[in-house]
Design a binder for these strands. Structure first.
Lengths: 240, 240
DNA sequence: GCAAAAGTGTTTTCCCTACACCCATGG
DNA sequence: CCATGGGTGTAGGGAAAACACTTTTGC
């Protein structure tokens, strides 16, 4: 009990799994931004971007500040807390508690990234440092779940897109085929999609030109709050 | 930047909003266990149970250890992380980062609780210490959401129950009327409910004796993983 | 005209809510 | 035999997946 309660030098770091859909055509996949450690411990392994929590900032400000060095902040379309990782020996030698985040970037532009960073498919991670591999998987699972019951797709998509481009983005993120037809129906019914009026040129082999769409609004919204056990019609949820 | 990065004495605490459905009949409501602060700062205000993270434990072990002093641990049917609260001045004077948890206790037995703790309806909180009020609301929202798409009801219910008793539990937790009929259908269809074979005696004014049920299993299971955008029939979600 | 890609209409299926009706008990 | 609460059957609605079919382009 004394050892448990003893005052100790507990460090607090923030880490982010920045996810985005990258790659051309068939190679398109959900990828994560990793950074190659240059010095011990665990030199050569790939780590999540992040760093020490500062004295005058909260965890979200901190991770945004630190990501600004790796990814252009304007590129970050969504940031949310995942969970705390606090196993005593997660960083050997000293006690470091980590607050992990999910960050999302849209799939069109490839932001400038430093030489020691790289995008890796989440399905083929390299040797990761510390517990960072499991943080990436948690981020992937959170993203997949929220794609279903929120409008989070806006954070992965380009500002404008055709339905088949959006289909590829959802397919890569979810890990299975998504039908463009049904995707459009679902997102339209929920009022998340809006035609820009423009069209994309047809490809070299012809085909009807595709209409361009955009997402309405760019903040996270829950679109499917009660899967079952809805409140009775007419009755509202009491605020408490 | 220097002030942000300066090494500082950052404390780390764990806090839990322990929720349960308490009270007889019409007074039944979702309540939270709070503890009255005896000494400054904020003496007299009501706080969540918790304390300092120890050097050799992770955050979940820590909150379980600390709750054991307030609530019998065997009563805790579910514990999960909510989020980190880290506003620099959330505890005036010194820097304390908090990992907040949701804890659940079943609604039958009233565990022994110390003199300075009390169950308060979440809809009528007293003056709370620090940011603990907003933590309670986050816990409530998480519980309400998960009651819909997981089997989390098991953590609030008694070991055995009639459907109308379970209906009262769900109603209190969700904040609106739930029909016993449909509740039974939904939980049965998902394979979460199982008749014990026994029946409860009828009340003083007669009525058919109610059948007794229990939940199958007592670990959290997600029962409604894809509200929409399900994988095509036949196709599985690729593990990555 | 033909292939290719996009978009629409329609069918089927499934699940949930709502409501009517039947069942078992105490007085 | 009637009031009271428990349980079941069923109808209606809504949303999503699947698929057939039409539209628009390049060659």
């Amino acid at each position: 009990m004394d050892t448990i309660n003893q005052v100790s030098q507990t460090g607090h770091e923030v880490l982010a799994a920045v996810l985005g859909v990258r790659g051309r055509d068939r190679e398109k996949s959900l990828r994560v931004l990793l950074w190659r450690r240059g010095r011990p411990p665990q030199a050569g392994r790939w780590a999540l971007p992040g760093g020490q929590l500062g004295a005058t900032e909260d965890v979200e400000s901190s991770i945004r500040r630190q990501l600004a060095e790796k990814v252009d902040v304007r590129q970050l379309t969504h940031v949310e807390q995942l969970s705390v990782f606090s196993a005593p020996e997660r960083v050997p030698g000293r006690r470091v508690v980590a607050t992990a985040f999910l960050g999302l970037v849209p799939c069109d532009v490839d932001p400038e990234i430093p030489d020691d960073t790289e995008w890796f498919p989440v399905s083929a991670l390299p040797e990761t440092a510390f517990d960072h591999g499991s943080i990436v998987l948690r981020a992937r699972d959170r993203l997949r779940a929220k794609l279903s019951y929120t409008n989070l797709g806006f954070a992965l998509a380009q500002p404008q897109f055709t339905m088949s481009a959006l289909r590829r983005v959802y397919s890569a993120a979810l890990g299975y085929r998504v039908s463009a037809t049904n995707l459009q129906r679902v997102l339209s019914r929920r009022g998340l999609l809006e035609p820009t009026g423009g069209t994309a040129p047809s490809g070299p082999s012809g085909g009807r030109p595709a209409a361009l769409f955009r997402f309405t609004g760019s903040g996270l919204r829950v679109t499917d709050p009660f899967a079952v056990l809805r409140p009775p019609s007419g009755e509202d949820v009491r605020s408490c």
